[in-house]
Design a binder for these strands. Sequence first.
DNA 1: TCTCGATGAGACAATCGCGTCTCACTTGGG
DNA 2: CCCAAGTGAGACGCGATTGTCTCATCGAGA
Lengths: 183, 183
Amino acid sequence: MTLDREQVLRSAAALLTHKSTATMDEVAKAAGIGRATLHRHFAGRDALVKALEDLGIQEFEAALDAARLDEGTSEEGLRRLIAAVEPSAGLLSFLVTENQLFEGDQVNEGWNRADARVSAFFRRGQERGEFRIDLTPAWLTEALYGLIGTGAWAVQVGRVATQDFQYMIVELLLGGARRSVEQ
Amino acid sequence: MTLDREQVLRSAAALLTHKSTATMDEVAKAAGIGRATLHRHFAGRDALVKALEDLGIQEFEAALDAARLDEGTSEEGLRRLIAAVEPSAGLLSFLVTENQLFEGDQVNEGWNRADARVSAFFRRGQERGEFRIDLTPAWLTEALYGLIGTGAWAVQVGRVATQDFQYMIVELLLGGARRSVEQ
DNA sequence: TCTCGATGAGACAATCGCGTCTCACTTGGG
DNA sequence: CCCAAGTGAGACGCGATTGTCTCATCGAGA
């Protein structure tokens, strides 16, 4: 039987995101495999985390490419980005949580690259007059990550329907909760 | 010498937020006390986490009281809530992200109470026509927690200025990133 | 100054999680 | 049908952590 490596990583990310102290045994059980098998594919906990980081960054950068952030309006770009990132939301929120533990120079290069792209996207939107300038690009970037993580969690525990994931995040991020006059 | 129990808990929360695998020895050193003394006040790691949980919920409920969510417009109530919760933001984000509010499948009762109050607040705002009805109260509640956590972290690493904490969260949550015409 | 309660440091055994190993079982290909 | 590869379950030692203990010290109050 061929082990579905990606499936293992995804379930591990989902678990470790909200329980970073989970044991290797819990990770294995969550993936529906034995602890021995988990060790056969990932030398140890460090290797597992490294694999999670690599896959998460790879998928996030792929999502950034697929979103074609330069084409059309910023709003369209953001909608495409969130749509493209949805399948990787669990991995991405793990990455964000994980990177919060590191200090400055220890942060993965790939993450820095992706982070810069997102930040630049928000700055471009501001320069075009499509995004508010009183909210800094850094904050908008962090808020995007936070909402993606929150959204993934909310879907996972059933507080938000799967098909509403994109809508809830995009609408809140773009328009906020306030009911505007024209609505 | 009287031990400052709350001071110990705050330093523990600050440490565990960054390094959830920190040992009891590290927690004790971070609080400036000996490991034996830490054990004298908190029977074990579980008891320590439980105390953190109780403190966090207590402070959150106090913030909910102080915010007087029923007075004035929903927007004013939300602004007061975020202002009141700022001092506890670190502790709250630790509890939310590390999922310490759950014991197995049982959610802490106090948390359920607080959660229900926040959710009811958003629902009330919708009924008053002040909040959008296409974003569910459950999602707005989760998004609020997520943004508080993200904001606390962004401030801590210097990505957002301390005095901007409230503004960034409230403005994004209420108005979103989109630049509206009247601006 | 004396006393008592609290603390810090360290010793100690017990427990836990990790990494490795063996062994029996299953599965898919030749 | 047979075999090789992969897997699950479990045992094992090791190191780290925990929880408890003792003992010397400190400090506030009598």
